[in-house]
């Protein structure tokens, strides 16, 4: 496969034995686990904040976000710091994953549209699905993952609880 213009580099990580990809242009850096300062009274999947060289960055637990069982963090837990295009500004956010695998070129032609049903994940989070070797990789739309509507929905849900 030659590096064609239509191919995009993706960072592949795994979570609960499933593979996900984020466009590398969105990834600011990948860091090892550091202490999280918990933030209470906010969305459940926001674990807290970390100090990244003087910047305060919120950490989202992807397992909780995807409705999976919470895992204890250990030294091997990894934070991927990503750029999010928020409503008002671009900000950084960290997501917790179990391991980072690879950076791969994914050709747009090999990308498929995410099916409406049959997946655990809501298709709106996904920008597509790619297959590399025999692995299925779900390509995440990071900006969508925290859209305000979603946040508001979750908040209301929490308040009604």
């Amino acid at each position: 496969m030659s590096a064609e213009a239509s191919s995009v580099k993706y960072l592949i990580f795994s979570l609960n034995k499933e593979y996900y990809g984020i466009p590398i242009s969105k990834v600011r850096e990948v860091i090892r686990f550091v202490n999280i300062t918990p933030v209470h009274e906010t969305l459940k999947f926001i674990k807290g904040v970390i100090n990244l060289r003087g910047k305060i960055i919120p950490i989202i637990d992807m397992r909780l976000k995807f409705g999976l069982q919470e895992n204890q963090y250990n030294d091997r837990t990894i934070f991927i710091i990503v750029d999010i295009h928020g409503v008002k500004s671009v900000f950084n956010m960290g997501i917790t994953v179990e391991s980072v695998h690879d950076v791969t070129d994914i050709n747009e032609e090999t990308m498929e549209k995410a099916p409406e049903i049959g997946l655990k994940l809501k298709s709106q989070y996904l920008s597509g699905i790619a297959k590399i070797k025999d692995k299925m990789i779900m390509l995440l739309n990071m900006d969508r993952i925290l859209t305000t509507e979603d946040v508001i929905l979750m908040k209301d849900f929490q308040k009604n609880e």
Partner: peptide, 11 residues
């Protein structure tokens, strides 16, 4: 005072 991210603005 540092900005808490937009995600936490509702605090």
């Amino acid at each position: 005072i540092k900005n808490l991210s937009e995600v936490l603005n509702d605090l």
